[in-house]
Each structure stands twice: as C-alpha cells, then as structure tokens.
C-alpha cells in the first residue's frame, strides 16, 4: 500500500541544513498496524506528515496505492488527503467553532457526499464510537477522551485507506488513552491500515510492527516483539 524508497527531507535555514529524514525506505502493507517510535527530533513526525501529504519530501519516492506522491501538486494532494487518509492528532485538532456533528461531517462535505448520506453516516459513526449523545456539543465542552473519539470519528468517516495517528494518546490520561488504543485495535481488527507515531512502548505494543527511528534514519523494524536488524544506510 505504501512504498517509500530513499526518502529524504531537508530543512534549510540560513545557517544550517538539517536532514530530518535521511534516505528512509519503508513498506506498509494493506491491513498493517505500524508504530513509529523514536526520540524527539528523530524524524518520525516528519515521516508521518509526508505520508499524510501535509509535507513534501526533498528527495526519494513515495508511492501510495500505486501512485507516485513526490512532486504532486497541492490540488492532487488535497484530493488524496480527503479520499484516502484519516488523521488523528495528539491535540485532537477539532474546530472549536463547529459542533461535534459538524466536525465529523466536514470531511464528507469536502468529498461531496450528499447531505442525507452524511447525516446517516455521522449517526452511525457516533453510535459506533459512543458519542451519539454529544453530537450537539462543542469540542470545548467535552473531555479529552471524548474529543479524541470525535477526532477518530472524523478520521474514519470517509472510510480512508489509511489512518495516520500522531501520538493519539499524548494528551490523554491512561484510562482515556487505553480507550483510544482499544478503538484503534478494533479498527485494525476490522481491516484498517494504521500508521501511528508514539512515545509510549505500551501503545506500541498494540501494533504489529514497530519502527524505531533516530536522527532521520530507521534504526530497526520490530515485528511482533521480534527484532529484525536492517542495514543502516549511511
């Protein structure tokens, strides 16, 4: 589903040039649940952002569902984002001015789903995530866990091919965090492809594969608690 080959990302300022990603190669198959771990500044978020088409690579190739993404224009990226990708963020990133219902509905609006269909799907999704009674509320009126559920609902509403989660439990207490992880596991069990960035070993243990990054490079890939050493390119 995702094939990344020799991908690099360089941030330039006037004085310094930082390689946030250094020739990273990675493959994620359909239905996989992959975690990316690593210290701050290791490039894991950058990788996630590039995969989510929020950021672009400096070099290398990124193939999503058989199409090359490097060099794609913003219009095309927006189209793929809205159709194929669902995002879950550490800080939820809900729109405070919109109600829970409107927040969940928004991706469908951009996808041109008919209004009646949208209403049906929002109801179903809210039911599934246990937030039906909160649809008329605004994000600021909800607890962190509930907000993250809304964010997950929003990420799933378009039935994306891949879910990208950037430290989804980072702002939650352990109980709410657990609930969110269980939610993601359920989704995975139902066939969703998930790529998650986290600091937490515990969260990572829910996934099938853990990628460890440092200094913009992939140090190791760990498959279900089994270490596989890979060649480090330099």
């Amino acid at each position: 589903m995702i094939e990344i080959n020799q991908l690099s990302k360089v941030f330039r300022t006037e004085e310094v040039e930082t390689k946030a990603l250094n020739n990273v190669s990675l493959t994620i198959k359909e239905g996989e649940f992959v975690t990316v771990m690593g210290p701050s500044g290791s490039g894991k978020s950058t990788l996630l952002n590039i995969i989510g088409l929020l950021d672009s690579a400096s070099a290398g190739s990124y193939n999503l569902l058989g199409n090359e993404m490097v060099g794609l224009k913003e219009r095309g990226r927006a189209k793929i984002r809205k159709q194929q990708i669902g995002f879950v963020f550490q800080n939820f990133n809900l729109i405070d001015e919109l109600s829970v219902y409107d927040n969940i509905e928004l991706p469908m609006v951009y996808n041109g789903v008919a209004a009646s269909e949208r209403a049906k799907r929002v109801e179903e999704m809210a039911e599934r995530l246990g937030i039906s009674h909160r649809l008329k509320h605004y994000p600021q009126q909800l607890s962190g866990g509930q907000q993250q559920r809304v964010a997950v609902a929003r990420a799933l509403i378009n039935e994306p091919k891949i879910i990208l989660a950037d430290e989804p439990t980072g702002n939650l207490d352990s109980k709410n965090g657990n609930e969110v992880m269980e939610l993601l596991t359920d989704l995975h069990a139902n066939g969703a492809t998930i790529l998650m960035v986290t600091h937490s070993d515990y969260d990572a243990s829910f996934s099938q594969k853990t990628i460890l990054m440092k200094d913009g490079m992939i140090l190791s890939e760990k498959q279900q608690n089994k270490n596989i050493d890979i060649v480090v390119n330099s």
């Binding site: 989510g52 929020l54 913003e74 219009r75 927006a78 189209k79 793929i80 984002r81 809205k82 159709q83 990708i85 995002f87 990133n93 809900l94 729109i95 928004l106 991706p107 951009y110 996808n111 929003r154």
Partner: peptide
C-alpha cells in the same frame, strides 16, 4: 490548517 488536512481544496 485543520480543514486543509481534511482535504479542503483552496
């Protein structure tokens, strides 16, 4: 930014 992430076109 959020809307853009969700795929809103310009």
């Amino acid at each position: 930014a959020i809307r853009k992430t969700l795929g809103a076109s310009t």
